[in-house]
Structure formats: C-alpha cells, structure tokens
Amino acid sequence: MKIADIRRSYTMDKLDLDKLNADPFLQFEAWLKDAVEAELPDPTAMCVATVDASGQPSQRLVLLKDVSSKGFVFYTNLGSRKASELEQNPKVSLHFPWHPLERQVIVYGTAERVPTSQVMSYFLSRPKESQLAAWASEQSRPISTRQVLMQKFAEIKHKFEHGEVPVPSFWGGFLVKPHQIEFWQGGEHRLHDRFMYKQQADKSWAIERLCP
C-alpha cells in the first residue's frame, strides 16, 4: 500500500452562495441535520484545538452539546488539558469532519465558561454511568493502569448508589463564540467549494468564497 496513492473523487454536491443561509448558525444547523439524518456515526463529534503557554497546539474529539446564535457548547473536566489551556488562552478552533457527506465545518472563536446553572442542568440530564465517570476520572492526569481507574469508578458507584449524583466542582462547560465559520463542500478535481462567514463590527456576517 502506498499512502500517496490513496485518494477519491468528491462528486456528491456543490455549494454556491445562493444556497447558503445568511445566518451561519442556521446554515450549521441545516448541515448538522443532514449529518444526523444520514446516520453518520457521532454526527456531533468535533475536534477542539487549543494552544498551551509555549505555543504548542493540541487537539481532541469532544461532543457538541448545544448550538445557538450565542455559539457552540461542550462540557469537560475543568482540570483537563483543554480546560487549562483555554483558561490561559481562550482562542479556540472547532472542526466538524462529516467525511461521508464530503463536508467540513471549521469554527474560529473564543471560549468562555458557561453559567453554573447551565452546567448543573446538563450534568443532571446525563446517564448515571456518565455522571459517575466524571467523578472517577482525573482527566489528562497520568494513571498507572486501567484497573486503578475501574477501581475508582466502582468506589464512586458505591458511594452514590442511592440518590442523585451531585455535580463535581471540577466539572464545567465552555461556550465557543465564533468570529469566523467556514463551510467546505468537496468538489471534483479537488476544486472544492469553500465559504467563510466573518463577523463584522455590527455583529452581522459577511460571506466570501475562498479558493480551494
């Protein structure tokens, strides 16, 4: 197998300015709906890219949990690498890779913590096993074996065997407020369609086509 020889043609669709919604959030919701209806695995999965104090970028996949005209929301352990880096540098990029639809969306923005009431509301809506896992895992911290993690999970499960699982103080969420959003549709001969929404000073959005 030669990696350089792996390629395919993109012929599913075309993207024109007159097909775009003037509101990037409505355009995103339409594409997300297409991804859900196409039964893509993990249609809300997005790559979150952050940068540490030395300038080293890092990426990881998380699940989008809300989107509105305010921005994109995800939740995490506040002691995790991504949360620590966002506290130092709130600039962030999100990437939605909907490969089977030959589409991508890239979000450029800044992250801010969501209110405690919103964190509590979402945490209490999670399956109990997910709530327990949030308590058991010191995300991004070294651990000797998986057995240690599972033992901690069993201890937490026993502790909260009866009644509700409280929201950990070290667990929260981030709202990514975008200033640019790119929509990418694969095209024949690598002549892809790319459109960038840019937020203006009056909070309106301008759209420009980019070369592939």
Results as ranks from 00 to 15, higher is better:
122 Y>V: 06
117 S>T: 07
40 L>I: 15
181 I>G: 08
77 N>A: 10
110 T>E: 14
167 V>P: 07
174 F>N: 11
17 L>E: 08
84 S>E: 14
127 P>R: 01
184 W>G: 03
114 V>W: 06
28 F>V: 03
172 G>S: 02
106 I>R: 14
109 G>W: 04
211 C>P: 04
162 H>C: 10
41 P>L: 15
204 S>P: 02
127 P>W: 04
149 L>Y: 04
65 K>H: 01
105 V>I: 12
139 Q>T: 01
147 Q>I: 00
25 F>C: 01
115 P>L: 03
208 E>R: 11
105 V>S: 03
206 A>T: 14
122 Y>H: 05
188 E>M: 06
120 M>Y: 12
189 H>D: 13
36 V>Y: 11
77 N>R: 08
123 F>V: 01
143 I>G: 07
67 V>W: 10
96 F>W: 08
183 F>W: 10
130 S>Y: 05
119 V>P: 00
115 P>V: 10
104 Q>F: 10
194 R>W: 05
152 K>D: 01
112 E>T: 11
29 E>I: 10
97 P>S: 03
112 E>R: 08
174 F>A: 02
125 S>E: 09
95 H>A: 11
164 E>A: 13
36 V>A: 05
2 K>I: 11
204 S>H: 11
66 D>H: 15
8 R>V: 06
119 V>M: 01
204 S>F: 09
45 A>R: 12
37 E>Q: 09
33 K>N: 13
205 W>V: 00
6 I>G: 00
173 G>L: 01
17 L>S: 00
173 G>N: 09
120 M>R: 14
208 E>I: 14
138 E>Q: 15
155 E>L: 04
10 Y>A: 13
52 D>S: 10
212 P>E: 00
163 G>Q: 12
46 M>V: 00
55 G>E: 00
118 Q>N: 05
184 W>H: 04
29 E>Q: 13
5 D>I: 02
182 E>N: 03
102 E>C: 03
79 G>W: 05
128 K>C: 09
51 V>F: 01
207 I>L: 13
120 M>T: 14
176 V>S: 02
206 A>D: 14
9 S>Y: 08
135 W>Y: 08
141 R>M: 15
182 E>K: 00
186 G>L: 07
189 H>G: 05
98 W>D: 02
206 A>F: 01
126 R>A: 01
154 A>I: 14
53 A>E: 15
52 D>M: 06
48 V>I: 13
161 E>T: 03
63 L>C: 10
178 P>K: 13
64 L>N: 08
34 D>T: 13
74 F>T: 05
187 G>K: 08
21 N>E: 15
176 V>L: 05
141 R>P: 09
211 C>H: 13
141 R>W: 03
153 F>Q: 09
151 Q>E: 12
128 K>S: 04
116 T>M: 07
134 A>G: 08
192 H>N: 07
183 F>K: 05
119 V>H: 09
